[in-house]
């Protein structure tokens, strides 16, 4: 998946996640800001990396996550929404998300 435009998904409300994806040069960069970074930072990064792998995003993007205590299912959903929007992709290939 190629990131071609800046895109946002999610909110800054409690239990949610706000994601900003931008095109960039070089390898994929993940910046994580979380209120629960100390306890769950590793888990959030793990879910994010798995989501990048599923969608085939490994370079050419900067992903900034502002986490407000989101559960794993919310993290996956918000990241996927932002990445699909950033790729200009309106159709979801559901097999890749399973």
């Amino acid at each position: 998946m190629q990131i071609i435009q800046e895109a946002l998904a999610g909110t800054l409300e409690s239990s949610d996640l706000f994601v900003r994806v931008s095109p960039s040069e070089g390898p994929l960069e993940l910046i994580l800001n979380s209120e629960v970074q100390h306890q769950f930072g590793d888990q959030i990064r793990k879910v994010a990396q798995e989501t990048f792998a599923k969608l085939g995003v490994s370079e050419g993007a900067t992903v900034i996550i502002e986490d407000k205590g989101a559960l794993d299912c919310v993290i996956e959903a918000r990241l996927e929404a932002a990445l699909l929007r950033a790729a200009g992709d309106k159709s979801v290939e559901w097999e890749t998300l399973s």
């Binding site: 559960l71 299912c73 919310v74 996956e76 959903a77 918000r78 929404a81 979801v92």
Partner: peptide
């Protein structure tokens, strides 16, 4: 609509 669909999909897949 697109983001809500994904949120509902992943919630359904979870055990919540």
């Amino acid at each position: 609509k697109d983001a809500a669909r994904l949120l509902v999909y992943h919630t359904l897949k979870s055990s919540l």
